[in-house]
């Protein structure tokens, strides 16, 4: 092969992109060089996060969003995250079932990803996968998180606009408040809004948003919208609100701030993983076994042992 993987990806080769995403997912050393070569070509795509309760219709909503974005001439990448089985390490990735209509569209690239034990709603590899799609030139990249609903905050630092999807009938407003979803939403979507309780939920969410002290001059007020994704209802309004949020971010210099946060978060992730790697290595050494013996004999204390371990893993290699 005369061309590098990176060159083929930049040329739009789907298989090469699929391959690199797998290297990234498997954390193979081969991925590093390619990601580094792609990095200068990233930073152009607009990133939309879609998160929310399991069964709230995230995949169906993403499918409808993709259709509307395509109709307006934009190309779209999708990273759809589903859970890995904690028992076998395997996964069934079924988000594509709701997105079949886009399979043959060359302006759409959908990738299913398993969490592989990562918490926070996305996989460890998701940010790098988004970079691959970004470098390929997709105008918008949608990240659909695993449907956990509580504490799912990794997506906040990754996306430009975060959509939180909920449905009527999941419990009272206290549930929504404690779920931590109130803080992360740039846009609230009440999907399946033909179901009983949609209007009450709408009122509750709006009331809760108004209760929070908010400086309208410097803070975005998240709209609460109703959709029925399966019937394509409310999607136009959702798109208009995404655009409004995009303009707001730009006007307030917040888009730049999200870029900075994202870059920092990416480096933090790499460093955290490298440290965790070294720590595991150090904990497998015979030195550590003797320290452990000393700890059990109470001739060593945990804090000094930790200092020694820190020094060992921070030694330059």
């Amino acid at each position: 092969m005369n061309t590098t993987l990176t060159e083929r990806i930049l040329g739009g080769d789907v298989r090469s992109a699929g391959r690199l995403m797998r290297w990234v997912d498997d954390d193979l050393p081969e991925a590093r060089h390619e990601l580094a070569a792609l990095y200068p070509h990233t930073g152009r795509a607009y990133l939309v996060g879609v998160t929310g309760n399991p069964g709230s219709g995230k995949s169906t909503l993403v499918n409808a969003l993709v259709a509307h974005l395509r109709a307006s001439g934009k190309t779209v990448g999708v990273v759809a995250v589903d859970p890995t089985s904690p028992f076998s390490g395997g996964a069934i990735l079924g988000d594509r079932v709701r997105m079949q209509q886009h399979s043959l569209d060359r302006g759409v690239f959908i990738r299913s990803v398993a969490t592989r034990g990562n918490l926070g709603g996305i996989s460890r590899s998701t940010p790098a996968m988004v970079q691959v799609l970004d470098a390929m030139g997709f105008d918008v990249v949608i990240i659909e998180t695993v449907g956990v609903g509580q504490d799912e905050v990794d997506i906040v630092r990754l996306a430009d606009t975060n959509i939180v999807v909920t449905v009527p009938g999941l419990g009272d407003d206290v549930q929504a408040e404690k779920a931590g979803l109130m803080e992360i939403a740039d846009i609230f979507v009440i999907n399946k809004s033909d179901q009983t309780g949609a209007d009450r939920l709408l009122r509750e969410l709006r009331t809760m948003l108004h209760l929070r002290p908010r400086d309208a001059a410097t803070e975005w007020t998240p709209p609460v919208l109703k959709t029925i994704a399966v019937r394509d209802e409310g999607i136009d309004t959702l798109l208009t609100n995404i655009e409004a949020h995009t303009s707001w971010l730009s006007a307030h210099g917040a888009r730049h701030q999200r870029d900075r946060t994202r870059a920092q978060q990416f480096v933090r992730l790499i460093v955290t993983e490298a440290l965790s790697h070294r720590l595991n290595h150090a904990l497998a050494s015979s030195d550590w076994q003797s320290t452990l013996d000393a700890l059990l004999a109470r001739t060593q204390n945990p804090h000094d042992a930790a200092d020694a371990l820190l020094n060992a893993i921070l030694e330059p290699r």
Partner: peptide
């Protein structure tokens, strides 16, 4: 069964064409 054996399985859904 494949998931339980540790594979990652992508399920396409019904009515796919060979091209899809």
């Amino acid at each position: 069964a494949l998931r339980d054996a540790g594979f990652e399985v992508i399920y396409s859904g019904l009515h796919q064409t060979p091209e899809m």
